[in-house]
């Protein structure tokens, strides 16, 4: 399975999760796990997703999420999971 981690960091407001999950559904990306916290009014969300069946290539999803982040006033990043696995798991 081709997995990626999406992280969203920024000022909290209504509708961040809704906007991101709506976009993910639109491009057929399945959410596997969500972790969300608010620390000192900073919204932090870490999401594991399956990008195997995505209807757009990675680069386009990357750009779309960047744009969506700008609209929402947060930073959205998508990274393949290998970077985290290779750094933290032997």
């Amino acid at each position: 399975m081709n997995k990626a981690v999406i992280t969203i960091i920024g000022a909290d407001r209504v509708g961040i999760i809704a906007a991101v999950s709506t976009y993910l559904a639109k491009v057929n990306i399945n959410i596997l796990d969500i972790n969300q916290t608010i620390m000192e009014e900073i919204f932090t969300m870490v999401t594991m997703v399956d990008i195997n069946e995505a209807t757009k290539p990675f680069d386009e999803i990357y750009n779309d999420l960047n744009e969506l982040g700008k609209e929402l006033g947060v930073v959205i990043q998508i990274q393949r999971t290998e970077i985290f696995r290779s750094m933290h798991k032997i």
Partner: peptide, 13 residues
């Protein structure tokens, strides 16, 4: 999640 949220945050930091 096989990778912990803390580990993800550490890498990004």
């Amino acid at each position: 999640m096989l990778i912990s949220v803390d580990e993800i945050k550490q890498t990004i930091h």
